[in-house]
């Protein structure tokens, strides 16, 4: 069913789900939502599968004309969303009526916003996923970012009578404020050291963990190029380099989301969703899974600070987050069941 027509595509709007698994051994990148936390919360609020495809927009959102009435959730960065000029809330279900125009006025905080739709966006599943991989030219909307005139398809089985019935149950759903993330200007990012930290001297590793890193303009869904710096006593920023111990070549090796590679120029590259599967530079550390969304919401010019943690601690955090998702899912299901009854 035709849900939205793209009137203006925005800066870089793509269809994403949680990504493609099982093909890294043949060089196929997983892609997927950069901020998997906001993305999954959006789907949970609609009672969708957590992997249901949605739109990821970057800094400048698209303008979308509703071709059908539907229920949506906007999560992630606040880009001042409006319907027919009137601002609408984020992090909770919103009804969009046929003919209305959904726009985004200006970025307030964060970098990436997710639009999830009741029932999910319908595009062909390519190699097990609906995620767009622009560099490989496949997945999502014909393997590319949205363009003017594209039509976004939704679930066929949802009739307008069903939608009003569901809206009655969803309209008052809200997340607890403690769950909704805020997006600070400086990201405190936890990492696991290695696997090639032995390419660096101990002093260099100390510099790495003490420095601040500026996100440069050469940053996109593939990765962020970082510039290390320190602030002197007269508060002038001084650029720093992260050099190798000795001039040593490394064999091409496997990388992952969150890998921090350091090329010969001493300027680290933090790999994100559309990374290649392999890379030839030493990896000084890896961002832990539960902190990747923070990186995804940082903009060029903003800063990162790295903090060392252990695999064990990172995996406990990952399990805690899964537990949170499950609790939210149960809580929202109960709220939906009770709506229309006494408690509201």
């Amino acid at each position: 069913m035709k849900m939205f027509e793209v009137v203006d595509p925005g800066l870089h709007t793509t269809i994403q789900d949680l990504g493609r698994t099982g093909f890294q051994h043949v060089g196929i990148s997983p892609a997927g939502a950069m901020d998997d936390f906001a993305f999954q919360l959006g789907n949970l609020l609609l009672g969708n599968e957590r992997n249901a495809a949605g739109l990821e927009m970057t800094m400048l959102g698209p303008s979308l004309r509703a071709l059908q009435s539907s229920i949506i959730v906007l999560s992630g960065a606040d880009l001042t969303p409006t319907i027919d000029g009137k601002e609408i809330p984020m992090w909770r279900p919103v009804m969009v009526l046929k003919g209305q125009l959904l726009c985004f006025e200006r970025p307030r905080y964060g970098a990436r916003t997710y639009l999830t739709i009741l029932g999910g966006i319908q595009v062909p599943i390519v190699l097990g996923s609906k995620s767009t991989y622009v560099k490989g030219k496949f997945g999502g909307m014909e393997g590319r970012a949205l363009e003017e005139g594209d039509v976004i398809e939704g679930e066929d089985s949802l009739r307008s009578s069903t939608i009003s019935e569901i809206w009655g149950k969803l309209r008052k759903l809200q997340l607890s404020a403690s769950v909704i993330p805020n997006y600070p200007l400086v990201g405190r990012i936890r990492v696991i050291s290695g696997p090639q930290d032995h390419f660096f001297m101990k002093e260099t590793l100390d510099v790495f963990y003490r420095s601040r890193f500026k996100i440069t303009n050469q940053s996109d869904r593939m990765g962020y190029r970082l510039q290390a710096f320190k602030v002197t006593r007269d508060s002038l920023p001084v650029s720093l380099s992260i050099p190798y111990k000795e001039n040593r070549e490394m064999l091409t090796d496997i990388v992952t989301k969150g890998s921090i590679q350091v090329p010969g120029n001493g300027k680290p590259i933090l790999l994100m969703a559309d990374r290649q599967t392999s890379g030839g530079y030493p990896k000084i550390a890896n961002v832990i899974s539960v902190d990747l969304w923070k990186v995804a919401q940082l903009l060029p010019g903003q800063e990162i600070h790295f903090e060392k943690t252990s695999v064990e601690a990172a995996q406990q955090e990952f399990r805690k987050r899964e537990y949170l998702f499950q609790q939210i899912e149960i809580y929202l299901r109960l709220q939906r069941q009770m709506t229309g009854g006494k408690i509201n």
Partner: peptide, 12 residues
């Protein structure tokens, strides 16, 4: 054997 982040293990 070493970790590559919290979701992968690397054997060299």
């Amino acid at each position: 054997i070493s970790p590559l982040g919290d979701r992968a293990v690397r054997l060299e």
